[in-house]
Design a protein around this nucleic acid. Structure first.
Length: 409
DNA sequence: AATCCACAGGAAGCCCGGGAAC
DNA sequence: GTTCCCGGGCTTCCTGTGGATT
């Protein structure tokens, strides 16, 4: 028994230190992002001499290194600031995780050591407190707003950003510099021009990594993460290639490599091979889906089961109206009040975005315009994820009655 | 060219719970 | 306690629309 723990703790036959493959791990260098680091560094450098810096937007898809570059540069900057004895405060907020304007500003306040309640205050009041804190510290405050697009889209209201850009105007002493990070390249399009002109003073674009670049990144980390001679080069290349296919996502690549290693380890192999990578790909996807499913609220679950049952009972893909009918039926069977079709339409879109179903708008001309809907995951994964849900599991086998609204095409 | 289906999806507003301030 | 604010989920009402059919 001791030996097992010993092996796992020390990394075992396969790993030397698997933490290096986590995507929140900060490596000593970031290959293929030298240019962005330099640019960001030169934009932020004036902070060291107490000058205001330009605000900046960084664009790029997930896993292209935006977040880590921002953190990397801020880290370095703070170290330098300490050397020079300058006060530079930094704060990193993920807007999607924070969720609302309120919580973003509250986080910023806390970043300055200002304690604020996590709800209850008027947003304006929060801004006042932020301003006060800034004023009294009289420091440079560099703020990273990650996934900033999530915030603006959800609230359809960029007053937060607008207020942030204006905060410097009524301030002497301290100031705030904003680094906005967005996954969405068209983010700019629905932004107030006033905000854009002040926040988008500088732009930084992160292109997806190519397969070769991913290979370099993986190789650098793998050398320290794995025991020598364990990792097969073909497996490494496959990880890079698969992740490159997924819009050059380094996060995905690292996940694949780590999980492949874990699979190899569990099957007591001495090497990590291509087949392990392929298994890892399945597992990563499976885990992702299961996690999404298990956090689905009641009506989305019923809805998903409706789509699933409808699909298994006949061949063609379903449309919104049919799905809604089945959904009502299931609600009736479970004695749950059903939601309106408008709401269901919205829920369907949410499921689509999560990749659980595929929905696309089609027109049948005379016979109307609707969404064609197909299940995007394996039915057994859904069944097993909902198997523990007493409220819903009885609906899993419930076959829909004959439907009225079928059109012949 | 006009019609018309079966919805899509925007806008506004309601209701609720949670929490702060007074 | 009362009053205010915020956000989330939802409904109601609405206008818009691609293309087969008339």
């Amino acid at each position: 028994m001791d030996l097992i723990f010993e092996q796992v703790l020390s990394g075992g036959q396969i790993f030397r230190d698997r933490n290096l493959l986590r995507h929140d791990y900060m490596p000593a260098s970031l290959p293929h992002r030298e240019e962005q680091i330099k640019r960001l560094g030169s934009v932020l450098a004036p902070a060291l001499s107490k000058e205001r810096v330009s605000n900046l937007f960084a664009y790029g898809k997930t896993g292209t290194g935006k977040t880590i570059v921002a953190k990397f540069v801020l880290d370095r900057l703070q170290k330098k600031a300490r050397d020079y004895g300058r006060a530079v405060d930094t704060s990193y907020v993920n807007c999607r995780l924070a969720g609302t304007n309120y919580r973003v500003i509250a986080d910023l306040c806390r970043g300055l050591g200002q304690d604020v309640p996590f709800t209850g205050l008027a947003v304006g009041e929060l801004f006042d407190r932020l301003r006060e804190a800034l004023q009294s510290r009289g420091s440079a405050f560099l703020v990273v707003l990650d996934e900033i697009d999530a915030l603006v889209k959800r609230s359809e209201d960029d007053s937060l950003l607008y207020e942030l850009t204006r905060i410097n105007e009524r301030l002497d002493g301290g100031w705030i510099g904003v680094i906005g990070i967005s996954n969405d390249l068209h983010f700019k399009d629905f932004l107030d021009p006033r905000v854009l002109s002040s926040l988008g003073e500088e732009e930084l674009v992160f292109k997806p990594y190519t397969s070769d670049e991913l290979y370099d990144i993986l190789k650098g980390r793998a050398e320290q993460a794995f025991q020598p001679d364990v990792l097969n080069d073909g497996a490494l290349r496959l990880c890079a290639a698969l992740a490159a296919g997924e819009h050059g996502d380094a996060r995905r690549a690292l996940d694949l490599l780590r999980v492949a290693g874990e699979i190899g380890e569990r099957s007591r192999e001495k090497n990590v091979l291509e087949c392990h990578v392929r298994m890892a790909q399945q597992k990563v996807e499976h885990d992702r889906v299961t996690e999404v499913l298990s956090s689905l609220p009641l009506h989305s679950r019923i809805l998903l089961i409706s789509v699933m049952n409808l699909e298994s009972s006949r061949k063609e893909s379903s449309v919104t109206g049919d799905v809604y009918e089945v959904y009502r039926e299931l609600c009736g069977a479970a004695a749950i009040e059903s939601l309106t079709q408008r709401r269901i339409s919205g829920l369907l879109n949410e499921l689509d975005i999560m990749g659980i179903i595929n929905a696309r708008v089609v027109s049948f001309g005379r016979y109307g315009r609707t969404k064609k809907i197909r299940l995007g995951v394996e039915p057994r994964v859904v069944s097993s994820a909902f198997g523990t849900d007493e409220l819903v599991k009885g609906l899993l086998g419930h076959m829909p009655r004959g439907l009225t609204g079928q059109h012949v095409h």
